[in-house]
Amino acid sequence: MNKLKEYVDSLFRKYRQTSKIRDLKEEVYTNLEAKRMDLIAAGFSPDEAFDQVRNSITEVDSLIEGNIKIDRFSFCRERMQWMLISLLSVWVITIPLRVFYSVFALSYLLAFVILIAGVYYIYFLKQRGKQCQKQTVYVNILYYRKVKRVVWVLWSMYFLFSFVMTTCVYFGSNLWFSRPVHIDGPYALGNMLVNYFLPLLTIVIPFIFGLNERLALKYEVE
């Protein structure tokens, strides 16, 4: 395999080889090869020609469809802030509901996760203080959009499933065997509402995934 082809391959290594990427790779390669032949015809040695050609393109991130350059620190910071806000909100809601058996463990688990996330956030802010320079990075907005869509679809399926399951548990015997629905007192009613309501709290997961796209556009640079 020739040196130039290897070099071009290395530029595209971190991208999934879709047909679009393959086309772009071929276009870049044939143009560089034409340039290299031109330089050799103009009297440069093959090594000099290769070096010049290689220096003319050192990254392809800006050429990838959907790639945008963002301010990494601001992006990560706001994403972490929203993550903490949504986790904390869910946690606060679960605290008064702890009397219900199904919420108890979840509430403690959330407190634990929030503690770790909070400590990490503070550590992240401290790190930033040390480096104190703007870092930019390329992210792919199309990828974020795709992930967001998939997560929303999965979440909708989960929510629908849990809704149907809860309904079956509480009203199934009534629907199929026409046995009356049996709810003794306010605690049982509350428990039923909690079982319906609890899966709704997981809406923060697709929300957090959806942040990527929104924040990438917000913190786009250049």
Binding site: N2, D23, E26, E27, Y29, T30, N31, E33, A34
Partner: peptide, 8 residues
């Protein structure tokens, strides 16, 4: 096809 690739 020319020189190991197609031109766009």
């Amino acid at each position: 096809e020319s020189q190991g690739g197609r031109r766009k």
